[in-house]
């Protein structure tokens, strides 16, 4: 599959989807002008990937900020991962949050409640 590598800006996240190197990651800030346009290719990619995935998929979210419109798209990504998991594939979601950011930690907890997929919360230091 083709590699998706999007370099983040001050309003769009960095995205890496790379099967060969086993990197699946969304990080940074997400408040794109057009959320649907930004996330559609990513959702398409995951949809296609889910059919051919063979090994374990560890999907990392390492966001420092996202707006509510993006939160809906993040849930769509998680729902695709949930589908993969339910169809018998091995999936793990890792939700990284800055250790002083309760809201980002809580956002992870809320997603973990909504989707039925193995979910790990990992705090990291911003320093």
């Amino acid at each position: 599959m083709e590699v998706i590598k999007i370099v983040g800006t001050d309003d769009t996240p960095s995205v890496t989807l790379d099967v060969a190197n086993e990197i699946f990651e969304v990080s940074g800030r997400s408040l794109p002008e057009d959320v649907a346009a930004f996330y559609e290719p990513i959702l398409d990619w995951i949809e296609r990937y889910s059919e051919e995935a063979s090994g374990k998929t560890v999907f990392n979210f390492k966001l420092v900020y996202f707006n509510t419109a993006s939160s809906k798209m993040l849930l769509d990504i998680l729902l695709k991962l949930e589908e993969m998991y339910e169809s018998g594939k091995e999936v793990l979601v890792r939700w990284h949050f800055p250790d002083d950011d309760e809201d980002m930690q809580e956002a992870g907890e809320e997603y973990a409640d909504i989707v039925e997929v193995p979910f790990e919360q990992i705090s990291y230091s911003m320093d």
């Binding site: 649907a36 509510t68 419109a69 939160s71 809906k72 798209m73 849930l75 809580e106 809320e110």
Partner: peptide, 23 residues
């Protein structure tokens, strides 16, 4: 509020204006 947020994010659709009804 947490419960309402979870309910809305699950049930709501992204509108054609790009809003999720969560603001």
């Amino acid at each position: 509020l947490k419960q309402l947020y979870k309910q809305q994010i699950k049930e709501g659709r992204l509108s054609n204006k790009g809003g999720a009804g969560l603001g």
